[in-house]
Design a protein around this nucleic acid. Structure first.
Length: 275
DNA sequence: GGGCATGTTAGCAC
DNA sequence: TGTGCTAACATGCC
């Protein structure tokens, strides 16, 4: 579920924003792995051994990954995928706790719980985070409009699935891809190389704006999978199939592209160039 | 029961 | 090599 704004919100929360003490400076006292497959590397037993006693020096984000930099130069990486979530608890997790996959006790007595109903999320502990992150493309604010336009010209894929490709661009998921394409007036099935440089620049700015606004809103809350966020009230196309476009009054449509839903306004986002 | 889901990857066809 | 399609991962919701 979480895309860049939701993961960024988690990173800020783990740094102690939003009124709860964070993770910075805390030592991990105990590690309980309830679902060993949640740990990608090393194996769950080794992961627990190596993480115990470590101190978190900094929390960062890259794309949709959360990063904890430890005092021994190792890094914890977490990808929440579709349904992973984190929360604080004051007591050890109940043995019957449903969906609990991993739990950490800190030196201040609190527990950080990782729950993941669908079991898609993964944790890594490594001295070389680039082995996990190396494939990621730039985030939308790490590329110039000219460079972005040039990369689009080199691709024949349709623009919407391309925006979801983390090698091409890091951090953009289904919600914000749809929202940015609508804001830029670009049809999701347009071939990337047919975008003019004007359209490419408009799309890049739209991505930056949508993500920045969503971070300010602490992300988008749809169900129990993500506890915060108010951006759902600003969505203009995502999950609005059949409803009226706020811009032009046409009915929002849904399209199947690369196995994912694409929501768009047929009037604001024509199939031909809109430069 | 069927279809859907804020994510990612592998295998295969073209 | 790039692209698209399907399945897989595993579960819950409508």
């Amino acid at each position: 579920m979480p895309e860049l704004p939701e993961v960024e919100t988690y990173a800020r929360w783990l740094r102690g924003a939003y009124g709860t003490p964070g993770l910075i400076g805390r030592q991990v006292r105990r590690v309980r792995v309830r679902w060993p497959a949640a740990v990608a590397t090393p194996d769950a037993t080794l992961f627990a051994q190596r993480l115990r006693g470590r101190t978190v020096q900094a929390v960062a984000r890259r794309g949709k990954y959360l990063l904890w930099h430890l005092e021994n130069r190792e890094t914890v990486l977490i990808h929440l995928r579709m349904s992973g979530r984190l929360r604080w608890a004051d007591a050890p997790p109940n043995e019957a706790a449903r969906h609990l996959r991993l739990a950490l006790e800190l030196d201040d007595g609190r527990w950080l719980l990782y729950e993941d109903p669908r079991k898609f999320g993964r944790w890594w502990l490594t001295a070389r985070p680039t082995t996990v992150l190396g494939h990621l493309g730039p985030e939308p604010w790490e590329i110039s409009p000219d460079a972005f336009a040039a990369r689009l010209r080199a691709r024949r894929a349709r623009i919407k699935p391309l925006l979801l490709n983390q090698r091409f661009l890091a951090g953009v998921g289904n919600i914000y891809a749809d929202e940015a394409l609508h804001r830029a007036g670009i049809h999701p099935a347009r071939a990337a190389h047919t975008l003019t440089s004007t359209e490419a620049a408009r799309l890049l700015y739209a991505l930056q704006e949508v993500l920045r606004e969503a971070i300010l809103a602490q992300g988008t809350r749809f169900d129990a999978a993500y506890p915060w966020g108010t951006y759902q009230q600003y969505l203009r196309v995502y999950s609005r199939e059949g409803q009226v476009c706020y811009t032009c009054g046409a009915r929002i449509r849904r399209l199947r592209l690369a196995g994912r839903s694409a929501h768009y306004c047929p009037q604001c986002q024509p199939r031909v160039s809109n430069a």
